[in-house]
Write a protein that binds this DNA or RNA. Structure first.
Length: 492
RNA sequence: CGGGAUGUAGCGCAGUCCGGUAGCGCACCUGGUUUGGGACCAGGGGGUCCCAGGUUCGAAUCCUGGUAUCCCGACCA
């Protein structure tokens, strides 16, 4: 018997690592920091993709695809941006292999050195803005609203499945606008799209805000973000939306003729969410029994498990299960029937619990007699015998909606219980050390103070809330005047 | 990338100190008895012992170098 999942209370990070593997979401690959996303895990990602993609399309965006490789020289065009990424990129230096003369295998052909080295994209601003230069001449070409689904590579030193991998999947939106206000509106609109997605599909409440200078994306004027809280009291940045000002337009010389016939630099945005969302999903809702999936992202919402003694019973149950499946399908509910013949139903129950399937329906001979089923919900681990009447499929539909609400409310309550206000540095340090969670505290606005607090407590400013400035006070660290409370936390 | 630990069958592990050619539990396959929350009996299959060198008559075991994973730190979405 393999060992069960570690308890969250005993070793949270071990619990996470093993859950990812045991729930069949992903596993490590032979290459450091890279992961294989398994079908069950990828199915969840696909659901995230399709929901987000629909939202992008609804707000006027189109998908396109730009290349994986970026000429090294492109990263020399914009100093600020390069600062942030140049250090940890994979670099392609050669284009051919050959057999080693001593027969020891394949080696890089030293004669096949590239004239210009290629960078595996850590993000695509440079290649996209160099392309936009050719696409944009007049204000009539604007706005340009483009998204791409892609993989990117950042050579991180310390990796964890989904949370920080060397290669990860994401979407990156890159838009160009005629006016500053339009670009800012776009940045904020996408922030709302992300927040809606995380709350409505992932059942996870978010905080919206702006990053401080030191946490800002290299090359951005402002970085907006959504921050979520995990069960261990650490914050996780779930998405970012950047107002780029005219920085990339300057670096790549992207100009347009405005309505007055004058040449002007284009205003830009970029925004992204990644497979990191999978990490947030796992850590936010799951328990010591395994994954808890919100119904809208579960690969299937309902699993039907037959309980049987012989083939005749199985056949009869299967017939009934198919009826149920069709009824639920009509409501848009995805159902899996698990007809594998097994000695005991118990391990199937455990498997779907581990995988977080929202609703399990068990049907046995007694149910066939009574025209009932046993319905179990994953989030609360409750089960009930329900009659198979006209109300049944509506009841399941309602149940799924309730599961979504319940796990959302639970996450919201957890966040409320773990959100604190600190008015002195001692209080602040005590909360960080003993409680965790989000802390609203006054800050003098300087990077120096932010850095000191980080050094001393490991807590960083997750964001400056959007309603910043309502209450003035004194910085908890320096005692200098503060225009408002910002949100601190230890973060992933 | 620095410090520490680990790597033996699909999973979890023993064997390593003290070198002698690999074992246990679960899973898997076959037959039978079973089946409303992780069944039982009998039989069976499966391993380049992370990789590459070295020492040795002989290496999972000793030495050297790599590599991957986990933890701490720095870095980071």
């Amino acid at each position: 018997m393999s060992k069960g999942l570690p308890k969250r209370s005993e070793d949270y990070s071990q619990w996470y690592n093993e859950l990812v593997k045991k729930a069949d979401l992903a596993e490590n690959s032979p290459v450091r920091g890279c992961m294989v996303i398994k079908p069950f895990g990828f199915s969840i990602w696909e659901k995230m993709q399709s929901a987000l993609d629909a939202k992008f399309k609804d707000t006027g965006h189109e998908n396109a695809y730009f290349p994986l490789f970026i000429p090294k020289s492109y990263l020399s065009k914009e100093a600020d941006h390069v600062e942030g990424f140049a250090k940890e990129c994979a670099v392609v230096t050669h284009y051919r292999l050959k057999n080693a003369e001593d027969g020891s295998g394949v080696i890089v052909d030293p004669e096949a050195k590239l004239e210009e080295e290629l960078i595996v994209r850590p993000t695509s601003e440079t290649v996209i803005w160099s392309t936009y230069k050719n696409w944009i001449q007049s204000y009539r070409d604007l706005p340009l609203l483009i998204n791409q689904w892609a993989n990117v590579v950042r050579w991180e030193m310390r990796t964890r499945l989904f949370l920080r991998t060397t290669e990860f999947l994401w979407q990156e939106g890159h838009t160009a606008h005629a006016t500053k206000q339009e670009a800012i509106d776009e940045t904020r609109q996408i922030l709302d799209v992300y927040a809606d997605f995380v709350e409505q599909h992932m059942a996870l409440p978010v905080l919206k805000g702006v990053k401080t200078e030191s946490e800002r994306f290299a090359g951005a004027v402002d970085t907006y973000c959504i921050e979520t809280l995990m069960q261990d009291g650490k914050a996780l940045q779930a998405g970012t939306s950047h107002f780029l000002g005219q920085n990339f337009a300057k670096a790549f010389d992207v100009k347009f003729t405005n309505q007055e016939g004058k040449l002007d630099l284009v205003w830009g945005t970029s925004w992204g969410v990644s497979t990191r969302l999978m990490g947030a999903l796992i850590m936010a809702h799951s328990d010591d029994n395994g994954l808890v999936l919100p119904p809208r992202l579960a690969p299937f919402q309902v699993v039907i498990v037959p309980i049987f003694k012989n083939d005749e019973q199985l056949e009869a149950i299967e017939k009934k299960a198919n009826e149920i499946k069709e009824n639920l399908k009509a409501k848009g509910i995805v159902v899996k029937y698990d007809g594998r013949k097994t000695h005991k139903p118990g391990w199937k129950f455990a498997e779907y619990e581990l995988k977080g399937i929202p609703v399990r329906i068990a049907i046995g001979p007694k149910d066939l007699e009574n025209n009932t089923v046993e319905v179990a919900r994953r989030d609360l681990l409750e089960k009930n015998i329900i009659p198979l009447d006209d109300q049944f499929s509506t009841g399941i539909e309602t149940l799924l909606a309730d599961i979504h609400q319940t796990i959302y409310k639970k996450a919201e309550q957890f966040r409320a219980d773990n959100t604190h206000h600190a008015d002195s540095y001692n209080e602040f340090k005590d909360i960080i050390k003993n409680k965790g969670g989000f802390i609203y505290a006054h800050w003098d606005g300087t990077p120096e103070t932010e850095e000191k607090i980080k050094e001393e407590t490991k807590a960083t400013i997750r964001c400056i809330p959007l309603d910043y400035g309502g209450e003035t006070g004194k910085c908890i660290y320096s005692g200098n005047p503060s225009k408002g409370r910002v949100i601190f936390a230890k973060a992933y």
